[in-house]
Design a protein around this nucleic acid. Structure first.
Lengths: 212, 212
DNA sequence: GACTGTGAAGCCATTCACAGCT
DNA sequence: AGCTGTGAATGGCTTCACAGTC
């Protein structure tokens, strides 16, 4: 199967599979079937096999997958066989939380800088970082080859911050602000919209009630 | 068009539309076309019309939509014509950030309690809340009619926390832990997986490079 | 017998294109 | 003339079901 267009849903599931496999490795399990993975992460076994099939044949018919082997393959597919440097702009509560979030480090994402515009945040220590002024942003991106930027500023500042990061050469953005950002189409953009997530819950709760 | 099954993507877009409309109201704009909304939020105009058509006919042919009117309709559809009480379990950096996140309050989500298991977090003030011990969780859920729970504990504790909240009567969960949760199927579950989001970026960055 | 890999079928969401209304 | 509402067409993802392999 030739890989040209991979569904985004497949990529997110691969990430979930990889964490499940990491757990199996810890548990000393050597072999796993698509059905067992499926069970563990709440999808169908056909889905697991299809997802993997986009990238090659990793299993053995009648047997299943070698856990360590499959894990290594998926990590490589996800681009996690290396580390990635990340900068965060916005040292409010959320930005600060992400700056020291262990889950990122565990998966090879190093936060190499956190910037803010506000004088009372600049200089504040965060883990082994210190909040820096916005003026340092471009230099830090160049010096550390940063390819991923995280936006945790208020909506009103988000587009400007995105523009600065893009101009400085960041190739992808993770946007936590509740603002639709415009970026050139060679820049990869993902939005994590906290309110939208709650609102989907609220819709479903209400909708369910309406249908009673 | 009769509303039986609404695509989840439609719901998330409605949430985005509603914020865009709120801005138009602030700007004093009275009427808007599907094309203008589409432009503002980065989707197609047909998509906007289809999304709205699931719920009724809100526009006027040849004219467009009344901004205030459409906003009210969407807010009602999303279940945001009321407030929702929310509890957060896990008063680490992320949970604390969410507890005081203005974006929730603005949209009618009131955080009415934040619990933690750790003695040194309990008692800590957070906005006008104080971190409470886990023992208070069930009572708080009952007393405040909490229907939405937010999980911001480490992966190892996430399932247990989810179970407690579900038992106490919460009807929906927003899970920030990197753990696949099992909940009864009358409970609505959404996952916000921070690492997965970065990993999708890393995949796309790597994949793009591979194809150069 | 067990389990993978994969075409084919089925299902769902998006886009097209136009009739219908103002 | 302008814009909505919507059937029809398209495209994409998931599920089915089974041949192929161990």
């Amino acid at each position: 199967m030739k890989a040209l267009k991979i569904p985004e849903a497949t990529v997110t599931r691969l990430s979930v599979y990889s964490r499940h496999l990491a757990q199996l490795i810890k548990d000393g399990i050597l072999t796993v079937s698509s059905g067992e993975i499926a069970m563990g992460v709440g999808v169908s076994s056909a889905q697991v096999r299809k997802d993997l099939a986009y990238f090659g044949e990793f299993g053995t018919r009648g047997v299943g997958y070698n856990v360590q082997d499959l894990y290594s393959h998926i990590m490589r597919i996800l681009g996690l066989n290396r580390t990635w440097n990340v900068v965060i702009v916005g040292a409010g509560k959320l930005g600060s939380a992400l700056a020291v979030y262990k889950g990122f480090e565990d998966r090879g994402f190093n936060v190499v800088g956190i910037m803010d515009i506000s004088a009372d945040r600049i200089g504040q220590p965060l883990g082994d970082l210190v909040v820096e002024p916005m003026e340092n942003l471009e230099q830090r991106i160049h010096e550390k080859n940063v390819e991923i930027g995280i936006v945790t500023v208020p909506a009103a500042a988000a587009q400007e911050v995105a523009d600065i990061m893009v101009r400085a050469g960041v190739r992808s953005l993770l946007n936590f602000s509740p603002r639709v950002l415009k970026v050139p189409d060679n820049v990869i953009l993902r939005n994590v919209d906290l309110s939208v997530n709650l609102e989907v819950l609220s819709f479903n709760l209400s909708f369910f009630d309406r249908r009673q």
